[in-house]
Amino acid sequence: MSHTALIPSHRKPRQSASKTALRAGVAGGVLSTIAVAGAAGPAQAEPVTQTIEMPTITAGLSTTVAASAEATQQVALDLETQASEDAAAATAAKAAKKAKAEAVRKAEAKKKAEAAAKAKAEAAERASRSTERTTLSAPSGSSSSSSSSSGSSVSTASAPASSSATGSAASVVSFVQMQVGDAYVSGGTGPNSWDCSGLVQAAFRTVGVDLPRVSQSQSTAGTQVGLGNLQPGDILYWGGAGSAYHVGVYVGGGQFVGAQNSSTGVVQRPLDYDMPTGAVRVL
């Protein structure tokens, strides 16, 4: 006996008979199961003998389906195009209608503005002359008495006719009448636009008479005459002698020619259209 045999830690444990038998039984059962499965497997498999046939789409049917799809797509495209064109046409028509209405409105507004401006200019012209006639001093001396005595005898001033003018006076009358219809421009001296004193100066220059340029000086450039003793070619003035604000030329028949204002231009009018204050005779 070994000298270590009595030491418990050096002894090999003994396996019991029951454990050995259990292990042997488990191993045998596993092997039996494998054997049974191997024997039963081939007997249960069966070969597949049935074939399933799939339907075949003929060439004609395929072509029909494709054509139908293409036609459907074309119809959809046509409808979309038509809808876009209709929307564009409606938008254009609406814009055109709006533009036309705006143009009509602007034209009417412009017409009204022009009419109002013309009426305002004429009213201002009349008011200005009325005011200046009131504030300016009356002509002195013989011109004053002549003017006061002419109030009831204006009809006698219309006795001479323009056809009765002769010589230089006829030339002056003819010149101013030829300018009727020309424009009025402040400071204008012709040939197609004038102010009042520029027209009178140019008319007398045709017969060799050099008049002053402005109305105030022209109103004292000759001999003062009464409105009841006018002759064609006399210079008419509005305002005081020496302080006149407007001049014209008497052409006979109770009428005068003058460059009035920007609205009327050069016109021929009867004396009662705007009665002058006095007159001077140069010729």
Rank of each mutant, 00 (worst) to 15 (best):
P270A: 07
Q73F: 07
A95M: 12
A67M: 08
A99R: 11
G252M: 07
V251N: 09
S137I: 03
S142E: 11
R269C: 02
Q44P: 00
G25L: 12
A165W: 00
V172Y: 05
D272Y: 14
S262E: 09
T64I: 15
A39D: 03
Y245L: 02
H10W: 05
A121I: 04
T51H: 09
A107C: 03
K110D: 12
A24I: 13
V280D: 03
R126W: 06
S128L: 09
Q44M: 11
L22I: 15
D274Q: 13
T58S: 14
G253I: 05
D86N: 11
A40M: 12
S143L: 15
K112G: 00
G240N: 02
I7Y: 05
V251S: 08
Y184H: 06
T91V: 08
E108K: 13
A221M: 06
A5D: 14
S163V: 08
T206S: 15
G41C: 05
G208P: 07
P212H: 03
T58H: 11
V209G: 00
G188M: 04
G233T: 00
E80A: 13
R269E: 14
F204T: 01
D234K: 04
T49I: 12
E70I: 12
S153K: 12
Q74D: 11
D86A: 14
T56C: 07
A40E: 12
V176P: 02
Q50A: 15
A121H: 07
G253P: 14
T264R: 15
M178T: 09
G242M: 09
L136I: 07
D274C: 12
A221R: 06
F175G: 01
L6F: 08
A83S: 13
M275D: 02
V247K: 02
V209C: 01
H3T: 06
A165K: 01
G187C: 06
D274T: 11
L61H: 12
K97H: 10
R269F: 06
A259V: 03
V247M: 04
T134A: 14
V207T: 09
G141L: 03
L230K: 04
Q82Y: 08
V48E: 14
T264C: 02
S197L: 00
A116F: 10
A127D: 14
V30T: 15
Q224T: 08
T131W: 09
E46Q: 13
T220V: 15
N192C: 00
A241S: 15
Q260V: 14
V104N: 10
G248I: 08
Q82W: 09
A90E: 13
A39W: 00
F175S: 02
A83V: 11
S171V: 11
D182Y: 06
V173R: 06
A43N: 08
T20I: 14
A244E: 02
G240Q: 05
T156S: 15
Y245R: 02
T206I: 08
A92C: 01
K100A: 12
S219Q: 01
S197T: 00
G28Y: 01
G248A: 06
K112F: 04
G28C: 05
D272W: 14
G198P: 13
Q44E: 10
G187K: 03
V225N: 02
S197C: 01
S243G: 12
S9P: 01
S262H: 10
S144G: 15
A83G: 10
L283V: 07
S174C: 03
N229L: 05
S164I: 03
A76D: 08
R126D: 11
I34S: 13
V247D: 05
G233S: 03
H246P: 09
S137F: 02
S147L: 12
